[in-house]
Design a protein around this nucleic acid. Structure first.
Lengths: 225, 225, 225, 225
DNA sequence: CATGAATGAGCTTTCATTCAT
DNA sequence: CATGAATGAAAGCTCATTCAT
């Protein structure tokens, strides 16, 4: 029969024989996985959808990743890696802590806005109570850079006397992330409930301004306000 | 043999002949749906799991709700209804806006904490880009009470001169909700990344204190700080 | 609950309480059955579709007809009854056998064309090897009029000397019916295979002329040709 | 317990591990499909019945054919292919057009009689208004041989002067097919209505003689009669 | 490295029908 | 005469995964 079965059932899927290197196959499967999991979540996305989107075959996913869960973990790690790369590119002037903090807030809000896969994959992961990320050896190493950026800015501001000294960097980090993440992750239900489309640039801009103000007012000393 | 076939065949699933009223059947299906969707999300939760948990049959879900999506919409509406009931029971002293606002924050944070189904169902819904709630005629009517509570407090505080007049109630509402929701919805990935368990009472208490402070600092006039 | 379950699942189906007489309900169910069975066949048509089309309820079908098969038998009997009524209205001049035979052919071809339900229901019935009609007590009484019309014309023509005496009326009857029925019943596959749409008036007219000629040439004596 | 579950569980359904080639599996599924669709029609025949009859599994039907409809199309194409093969084996002496035409009629009538699957599958297909065959790319290529055989004989007869020149080959083709097909496809309802069993050899023989005579009388010139 | 074949359990949904009032 | 409730079986189809080469 040779290739006839599949070409009968899925005629649109013919791929050339050995025309792609291993690296490419693995990569395109991973990209496809991020795309499909972003659109349908872990449960909603199927192995078949992913392999088809990658112009490959189901079997290759098992070859390279073992199973669906491991593929999902790889996808999670990849989007975290990308976030860290983007964050590392952020050049902050620590000598101006107030401005630096504002930049961090802008970066976070805009990163979430332009990278829905980040929000959606984490959303799906939390629906599963974090069971996949718990299996990742790289989980914690990925978070430290993010938090340390906030920590650095905070320390410098305290040292300069413009930031309050009682703020825990973990809380500040979570505040910034929460205000950015929630707006994106819940924009659909929020839009429905508020009767306003949160995806318009105007409303996002207003929110960004508000968040910056809220963060600064929380952190700044009365004198620096 | 499939698990489903077994459960159909096993005698212990047989329920007494028409011993339950329609009210009970519909209700228990809805309660079971909330439970199962909370634990596994929309895609992860199966019709079979739900009917079994309700001690009923698959068929009755279609009898009472039409299909899986409509059942999910009914579940969403129910948890929103409950939230509004709980919020309506909240007695605020509007003459003390600062205290009232603190109470609102405490209420929201604790409601999300004690009602994981609220967070999880919305999480699942946003994964589907809000397509289910868009079909609900009750969506908007459910959100207005929540926002108006914040609005009332805010107006009163502005009138008394202790709250800043430039705050939009929608932004304030979203801030409170975001800080409460995100902590719960992302507690699994956050715990993994931070290396700290956010479900311990101590860390939650610290977060609650921080959020109250952040909200008040954002809203209060310099004089009232 | 009362009516809430159905109105939730099938909101478009509310019917007034007792606003229709029994006669009407039974009749509209029968009409709906003919319609649905015509469109989808016995297997393809569902009890639910039928009761909905009749603006009634599943339960009423069982009340009036007992089960799906008996409903189908009733539908078959009804379309045969209608055919006989139409045929009885046909006024033939037996003194002109050739003309009368032509009229019969025209009647049959046009009846099948304008009553697709006749063709489709019989089609469906033959797919089930006639098991439903075998249960009908009225089956044979319905066929006699049809055949006797052909028989009368044939006898008269033989008596007059213009028709050949060796023709069996059963064969002649089947020939006319076959040429009319097949064209209608198989018009879809024929159109696909021939690459011509048999539903256009021109092609039907050509066929009608051809059939009349074929029937007459088969029956007429050489002298009368 | 459902019958399906049972058949999944019972050991006698287990087939040897990979003891069958793909060729065999696909073919036996197709053969089983023809058998089951012949007996119960498209709607009445189930995927489960077919896979069981082929000693295979539901899943393989989707693997090889995609879905039930495509399997049905494949079945239709297969029986048409077989008809064409049988017809191609027919050796006609075109120098004797009258005899050749008689042979064509005998061939068609006997093919339909001995291949009920041909009649039944087309019957079922027409019940669905030809929607499946419309999706077949091979539909028209299958019909041309059949019609061209009739066309060849007709032309030769006209050339020799024994056949009338006004006959359209399409009409002649449809006449022969109609008289053969209808007798088989409607033999159940006809038997019930006529009170005679059309499956007895005597009645079939009489019909065959009649049809040959009718076709020849329609086609022959008066001189050749 | 890659692929065709196969597997069995699971999914959501619809079926005809019956019960009790 | 009619209806709301319930039932169990079966439908078509998709799931993640494994085998053998």
């Amino acid at each position: 029969m040779t290739a006839k079965a599949i070409s009968n059932a899925l005629p649109q899927r013919k791929i050339g024989v050995r025309e792609k290197s291993a690296e490419t196959t693995r990569d395109s499967l991973l990209m496809a996985a991020i795309k499909v999991f972003t659109e349908h979540g872990f449960d909603g996305g199927s192995i078949d959808q992913i392999s088809r989107a990658a112009n490959s075959h189901d079997r290759m996913i098992y070859y390279y990743f073992g199973n669906k869960e491991s593929l999902f973990v790889a996808a999670l790690e990849e989007i975290y890696r990308r976030f860290n790369v983007a964050e590392a590119a952020l050049k902050l002037d620590l000598e101006q802590p107030k401005l630096a903090l504002e930049q961090v807030v802008r970066f976070v809000l805009n990163y979430y806005k332009t990278h829905p896969e980040f929000v959606t994959l984490l959303n799906s992961e939390n629906l599963h109570r974090g069971k996949h990320i718990a299996r990742s050896s790289k989980a914690q190493e990925f978070s430290s850079p993010a938090i340390s950026v906030v920590d650095d800015v905070l320390r410098r501001g305290v040292a300069q006397g413009c930031f309050r000294s009682t703020i825990a960097s973990r809380d500040l980090y979570m505040m910034i992330v929460a205000l950015g993440y929630f707006y994106q992750s819940n924009r659909f239900t929020l839009s429905a409930f508020l009767g306003e489309n949160l995806e318009t640039p105007e409303i996002f801009a207003q929110w960004e301004t508000f968040v910056i103000e809220a963060v600064l007012r929380t952190v700044l000393t009365p004198a620096a306000l």
